[in-house]
């Protein structure tokens, strides 16, 4: 049989692999933030300023994210929602003109998703809102954010830490989220 590796090469590979493994494991142990998107704050096509809308103008979260109480998803508002105000307000700003243009052309805006969960996790916004969880509990002080940033790491440990609190009476079954 053809030998693919020389014995010495194989040894080096094994050593390298072991080293990587050790690095990985210690990394995961002492740097629990690794692998999560905490602090992720991508540039958006239009720099929508939550601190201005929510902080200064006191617009309710649910004014735009209006389906959050009845859906598992919190919707990104349709352009028509923006236009409720921006047909009149700040129409001279280039970004609003960009928005207006997209609206008039029947187009949309490609926002960059900030909070992402893997496909095997089913999170339900409406269930949490109904229990009285504030938006800020998970999303941080959005009313102070000029650019939205992921505040929590959205890891399973983070989810479960809250579900485990006895006063929350939250289910801890795997199938609460994974199905």
């Amino acid at each position: 049989m053809h030998r693919v590796f020389k014995r010495s090469t194989a040894g080096v590979v094994a050593l390298l692999g072991a080293l990587m493994m050790v690095t990985l494991l210690t990394g995961c142990k002492f740097q629990p933030g690794w692998g999560y998107n905490k602090g992720y704050a991508p540039e958006q096509p239009i720099p929508f300023d939550h601190s201005l809308h929510v902080g200064n103008h006191n617009i309710q979260c649910q004014y735009c994210h209006n389906q959050v109480e009845r859906s598992k998803h919190s919707n990104i508002p349709a352009l028509s929602t923006c236009m409720n105000c921006h047909l009149q307000v700040a129409t001279d700003k280039p970004n609003i003109q960009k928005l207006r243009e997209a609206y008039d052309n029947g187009g949309s805006v490609e926002w960059v998703r900030v909070h992402m969960l893997p496909d095997f996790v089913h999170f339900n916004h409406s269930a949490h809102i109904a229990k009285g969880v504030n938006c800020q509990t998970c999303h941080g002080e959005v009313e102070k954010m000029q650019k939205v940033e992921q505040v929590s790491d959205l890891s399973m440990g983070w989810c479960v830490s809250c579900h485990r609190e006895p006063e929350n009476k939250a289910p801890l079954n795997c199938s609460t989220c994974h199905y």
Binding site: Y36, A102, S108
Partner: peptide, 14 residues
């Protein structure tokens, strides 16, 4: 920590 960027494209009119 490498994640693909996902885009969200909302409706023009809801």
């Amino acid at each position: 920590i490498r994640r693909p960027v996902q885009k969200i494209v909302p409706y023009n009119k809801q």
